[in-house]
Design a protein around this nucleic acid. Structure first.
Length: 222
DNA sequence: CGCCAGGGCCTCA
DNA sequence: TGAGGCCATGGC
């Protein structure tokens, strides 16, 4: 396991996750620097992106984010004040738009009552529980939010993580989400940037080689 | 054309 | 608690 993550870091020293849209632009980009100060708009964009990308390719999410940016739907308040049809149209490319509209709506109502400043005071697990309590947010989405929008150390376990670890015989196939998460957290350094980058690297490798139908030629983990 | 994508909810045993 | 159905668009 430790060997696996060392190799991962060697391959991808820094992927710049989570992609954020720079001020006065509309397209999210990956950050060259590890330390960036997130504005509330940035944080909101990450939370929205985490929901929009559920079981959806990031390319489809980018278009939705671009539309939301152009419509200046950059805050919970603006989202809630915007007409449903307009928002649905904006996020259409990300698929499941009816469900996702509802999820975003519920998230925004939550954020109106709980400012980022207040949410940041919670401990990691407590903040996770807060998000998990919202309809439409499961463990992976909650953990993405906690890690990338709030810079709190929790490892994001997605289908890619389960796939690549089980293919490399580092975990049993039917291990539960939190069992995998805790196992990984025990085996990696206590570093926020590594938590982010290891997850990003797993996604990257699974997109290129360790696909559902694996391209085992040139696999670095052979 | 079919498959897949940075999941989660609901239903029914 | 586990399996199966459902949600939906766009790239390949």
């Amino acid at each position: 396991m430790k060997q696996f993550f060392n190799k991962l870091e060697e391959l991808y020293p820094w992927l710049g996750w989570w992609p954020i849209t720079p001020k006065n632009e509309v397209t999210p980009i990956y950050s060259k620097s590890k330390k960036i100060l997130l504005t509330n708009e940035n944080k909101f964009e990450i939370l929205v992106g985490a929901i929009l990308t559920q079981n959806t390719s990031w390319n489809n999410v980018i278009k939705a984010i671009q539309n939301l940016k152009k419509l200046k739907i950059l805050s919970p308040e603006n989202f809630l004040n915007q007409k449903k049809n307009i928002v649905i149209q904006a996020i259409k490319s990300s698929g499941y738009f009816n469900q996702k509209y509802k999820k975003l709506f519920i998230l925004c109502e939550f954020l109106e009552k709980n400012s980022f400043e207040n949410l940041e005071k919670y401990k990691t697990i407590e903040l996770r529980e807060k998000f998990l309590g919202l309809w439409g947010i499961g463990k992976e989405t909650a953990d993405s939010m906690v890690l990338y929008a709030f810079n709190k150390k929790i490892f994001v376990v997605d289908t890619y993580t389960r796939r690549i670890l089980s293919r490399n015989k580092l975990i049993e196939e039917n291990l539960e989400y939190d069992e995998i998460r805790i196992l990984i957290e025990k085996n990696i350094p206590n570093s926020l940037y590594k938590y982010k980058n290891y997850h990003a690297a797993i996604v990257e490798i699974c997109k290129t080689n360790c696909k559902k139908k694996p391209l085992c030629d040139g696999c670095v983990f052979k």
